[in-house]
Structure formats: structure tokens, C-alpha cells
Design a binder for these strands. Structure first.
Lengths: 148, 148
DNA sequence: GTACTTGCAAAGATTTTGCTTCCAA
DNA sequence: TTGGAAGCAAAATCTTTGCAAGTAC
């Protein structure tokens, strides 16, 4: 599940404080991992990395923190075409939406940005008067390395 | 989770037979429900409708049949932004991919087709040499009826 | 007849809830 | 100090697996 590292506008911890969210030690550890991650993490992977920094962190706290971040629109939740089980993956929200391409053979996840995607979202908002909060485009298929 | 009824190229049962899939009574009941459904069904809803026609049908058979249909690329699996729980929804694959718009307030699901979506997929295939098997675009937001 | 499918029960994976204790502001 | 957050245990939800019995071809 590798992906390029990416950076958000400003530190999540800082963003949360400015929104009046109580900044606990656990939350600080968790958002630092999410922001520094070189891949898309699921809840359990995030929990394991967090325990390396603070062995007392509970899995439930991970779920609750992810829910809180999602509620604030600071992370995106991905399914990555359910390549391995039904868990979800998380990434810090970036300035621009991107598409996830999941290779059904090797499992590699690529990211893709396109102005067509932005135009498509604009078209939906105009033609349906639908105010998009979150858009998720995932494609499953065969990557360039996995073709005959 | 209402959506317009839609029809596929040819009956799923017929399609399966032509692919050499053993056509059991249970499978026939299930694919007929999927094809005639006026909404996106999850596994349990599908099971309940199937039991009305044949009370002996087991939930496990529903999951196994859905997995088989998915493997053959005859149904699409949707998450519908996880509006209610983490279950999946299924629909018979149609000739043209469409986008699902999930209202975060009223829960209504709208479908949207666009040539921009087709162009975007084409761009991905060309620029990344990625052979798309299935593409899923879901957006969460507020529909025209749910805006101030 | 044989290989594939089903039903049943049980387990597995992921996520949520209730409640008490703790801690950030 | 006090309301929100964390930890723990238990439950809930959704899906899969093992195996014996049944059935389509």
C-alpha cells in the first residue's frame, strides 16, 4: 500500500488546537503519524505505530481519533478497492483531491490528479445543485508493471 | 437508498449460463432480485427479499453469490459513503459507469453520468498505462433539497 | 457419478459502546 | 475544577470458513 509522502497545509495538531479541540498526548502522537506516513494506514497499522511511541495507547482511541478527524474533514477515508479485507485507510487531506489507482495484481496504489476531476466535480455541483463535501474516486485494474 | 431502476444488457442468469456457471435455484432467485431491484441492496436486504421467494436460502449463499458475480464483473460493489454502517451495496453492472451522490443529510442517493467521467478514465489509462477494470466515484455532500 | 454448491454453525475481522478513571484547559 | 478524553471490556456489525449433505450437468 505504498504511496508518495505528501504534506498538508499546516500541522494537524495546530489545526485542531485552532479549532478548539483538546490536544491530548494520544492525539498528538496519532496525528503526527498520520501526517508523516509514507503509505495509507489502516486503523490497526496506525495503532501499532502509535504503540511504538506510547505503549499505553488503546485501539479504541485510534478509532475515536479517526472519527474526530473525519468529522472535521481533516482526513480522507479510503477503501482502496478492498484489496485486502474491508478495513479503511486514512490520509491527511491535501489541498487537492486525488484519485487512487489500485492494482488488482500487485496491490500497488498510485495517486493521480487531474483537472478533469475538478471539472467533473464542478459539473455535478452545477447540474445537480449538489454541494460536495467529500469526493472519492478509486479505480481497480492493472498497472503498467502488471500488463502482458 | 432509493435509485432509479436500471436494466443491464441481458439477463444475468443467461449471462452466467453462457459463462459455464452452474445455475442453481438459489442463484436464479438472487440474480433476479438484483436485476429487478429499484434500489441499491446490501447483502442482508438481498437475503430478506430472497427468503420471501424461497425461505430456505441462507445468508452465506448470498455472500457467496455476490462474490461470484463480482469476480465475473457482473455487479458493482458500492459503499455509498458509508452513510449507514460499513456494509456494501450492489447493483447489476450497466453499460455505462455512473457516479453516486450521497446526501449526508437525508441519505438520498442520486446517480450521475458524465462524459467527463469517461474522459477522465481515458486519461488515466493513457497517462499511467493503467488498465481500468472497475472505477467507482462516490461523492458525499448536500443535495438540492437539503440546502438552506 | 462427480464436482460444484448449499446450509449450518462457528469463527474472523473490523468497528462501536458503556462505563469508570484521568487529564487538558 | 470540570467537561471532554482515554482505557478497558464487552458487544455489535458485517463477512468468511470448514465441513457434511445435496444437486446440476
Amino acid at each position: 500500500m505504498l504511496a508518495e509522502s505528501r504534506s498538508s497545509r499546516r500541522p494537524l495538531a495546530q489545526e485542531l488546537v485552532s479549532r478548539g479541540v483538546r490536544m491530548t498526548h494520544q492525539r498528538r502522537v496519532l496525528v503526527e503519524i498520520i501526517q508523516g506516513a509514507d503509505s495509507h494506514l489502516d486503523a490497526v497499522e496506525l495503532w501499532q505505530r502509535a504503540r511504538a511511541k506510547d505503549p499505553t495507547i488503546n485501539k479504541v482511541t485510534v478509532y475515536r481519533t479517526l472519527a474526530m478527524l473525519k468529522k472535521h474533514g481533516l482526513v480522507d477515508e479510503l477503501d482502496l478497492m478492498h484489496l485486502e479485507g474491508e478495513k479503511h485507510y486514512y490520509e491527511a487531506k491535501t489541498t487537492r483531491d486525488h484519485i487512487h489507482l489500485a492494482c488488482l495484481k500487485c496491490g500497488r496504489i498510485q495517486e493521480f490528479e487531474s483537472s478533469l476531476f475538478e471539472r467533473l466535480k464542478g459539473q455535478i455541483e452545477r447540474e445537480r445543485r449538489f454541494r460536495i463535501q467529500v469526493a472519492r474516486l478509486e479505480a481497480g485494474g492493472y498497472c503498467d508493471r502488471c500488463q502482458p
